[in-house]
C-alpha cells in the first residue's frame, strides 16, 4: 500500500494565461487533519478545485494528483468520478451553492447514496437518516422532508456534511465551512468535524483565512501566499515559533479577547494581483523583514532542521536554520505601503 492517501506534486493552475498557482506539493496521510491558511486570493480553493477537476474550462491545470498512488489529473471521466464524492468529498463556504433549493434534503442525500454506494429505497432512506443523525440534525425523520431554505445556516452546513459523508470518503476537504457562521455555531461545526474524524478515521483538509479556527481542528498547517506554500509545519511549531514573516503576521493580526484593549497589528497592504506579482519574494512589498535580496531572488521552499518547510531568506523567530543568511547581514528595507 502507498503510504500517503493523496499526493499533490507541482500542481499549477493558470486562468487565461495568468498563473495563479505556482506548483503545490502536498502529502496527506490517512486520517490526518491539515489546515490550509492564507488571505483570500492566495489559491487555497483553487488548489482543491484543480485537484478534483472542478475548475471551468478556461483553467489550465498541470502537475500530478495521486490518490492511493493512482493519477487522477487529466484522466478520463470515469477515473475522476470514482474519486470525486467517493474517495474525496468537498464542502464549501456557501451551502446554498451546493444544495439544490427545489429538492427535499432527504432526496438529495439519497441521490448521493445511490451514486456513490448503490443504495436505493428503504436502505438509502435509513442510511440518510443515520447520516443526518450523525451530523446532529435533531428530529431527522421529519426534517428529511424539508427544503434547504427551511434550515438555518448552521444546519445547512450540517446537511452538506451529511451529503459529503454519503460516499464514505477517505478525505473531506472543507473549504471555509464556518466563515459565514456565528462563533457559537462555528464552534459546533468544528466540534462536529473533529468528532466525525475520530469516528470515521477520514482525513480532513480545513481551509480558512483564520489561523485561530485552523488550530482548533488540525495538527498541521500549510500557509499559502500568492499561489505558493510559504511555510508548513505542526500547528504547535507554527504557533510557538512562526518563522515566515507572513505566518507571524497572520497570527499577530488575530485580535485578542483577553488582556487590555489594544491596537491591532495588521499586515500592511494587500495580496498582489496574480497578473502583477512582485519580483523576488511575492511577500516583500508587505514584509517588515525584507532585505535587498528579497526583491530580486525568490526564496525556495526547503525543509529546516526542526522539520518544517519554509521559504524565506530572512526568517523571523529563533534558530535560523543552517544555510540561511542572518537578517542582520542584509540591509533591511522599509516595507512599501
Amino acid at each position: 500500500m502507498v503510504k500517503n492517501l493523496v499526493e499533490l506534486r507541482g500542481l499549477k493552475v493558470a486562468f487565461d494565461g495568468v498563473q495563479v498557482l505556482h506548483g503545490i506539493d502536498l502529502d496527506i496521510a490517512r486520517g490526518e487533519a491539515i489546515g490550509l491558511v492564507g488571505e483570500s486570493g492566495c489559491g487555497k480553493s483553487v488548489t482543491w478545485l484543480a485537484a478534483l477537476g472542478l475548475l471551468p474550462g478556461k483553467a489550465t491545470v498541470s502537475g500530478s494528483v495521486r490518490v492511493d498512488g493512482q493519477e487522477i489529473l487529466a484522466q478520463p471521466r470515469h477515473v475522476l468520478e470514482g474519486v470525486r464524492g467517493k474517495r474525496i468529498a468537498m464542502i464549501f463556504q456557501d451551502p446554498s451553492s451546493s444544495l439544490n433549493p427545489v429538492l427535499r434534503v432527504g432526496r438529495q442525500i439519497t441521490e448521493a447514496l445511490a451514486i456513490h454506494r448503490g443504495l436505493h429505497g428503504e436502505a438509502a432512506k435509513a442510511e440518510a437518516l443515520r447520516l443526518l443523525d450523525m451530523v446532529g440534525i435533531p428530529d431527522a425523520r421529519r426534517r428529511i422532508e424539508l427544503f434547504p431554505h427551511e434550515f438555518s445556516g448552521g444546519q445547512c452546513q450540517r446537511v452538506m456534511i451529511a451529503m459529503a459523508l454519503a460516499g464514505e470518503p477517505d478525505l473531506l476537504v472543507a473549504d471555509e465551512p464556518t466563515t459565514a457562521l456565528d462563533a457559537t455555531i462555528q464552534a459546533q461545526i468544528l466540534d462536529l468535524l473533529i468528532a466525525l474524524r475520530a469516528e470515521t478515521g477520514m482525513a480532513t483538509i480545513f481551509i480558512s483565512h483564520d489561523l485561530g479556527a485552523v488550530s482548533q481542528v488540525c495538527e498541521r498547517a500549510c500557509v499559502m501566499y500568492a499561489g505558493r506554500i510559504v511555510e508548513q509545519g505542526t500547528i504547535q511549531a507554527l504557533f510557538d515559533n512562526p518563522r515566515h514573516p507572513y505566518t507571524r503576521g497572520l497570527f499577530d493580526a488575530i485580535p485578542r479577547l483577553d488582556g487590555p484593549r489594544e491596537r491591532l497589528i495588521p499586515i500592511p497592504g494587500t495580496v498582489p494581483n496574480p497578473r502583477d506579482l512582485p519580483e523576488g519574494c511575492a511577500f516583500s512589498p508587505r514584509c517588515s523583514h525584507a532585505a535587498i535580496d528579497c526583491r530580486t531572488r525568490m526564496p525556495a521552499l526547503h525543509s529546516t532542521d526542526d522539520g518544517r518547510l519554509l521559504s524565506c531568506h530572512h526568517p523571523v523567530g529563533s534558530h535560523p536554520p543552517i544555510g540561511v543568511t542572518h537578517p542582520a547581514e542584509a540591509r533591511v528595507l522599509e516595507p512599501l505601503s
Partner: peptide
Amino acid sequence: SSVPVPGKLLQGRVILQGEP
C-alpha cells in the same frame, strides 16, 4: 467560550448547543 484561541485545540471548551 466559543471564541477560538489560536494554538489551542477545541477540545475541553464549553460549546453552546442549540440553534441561534
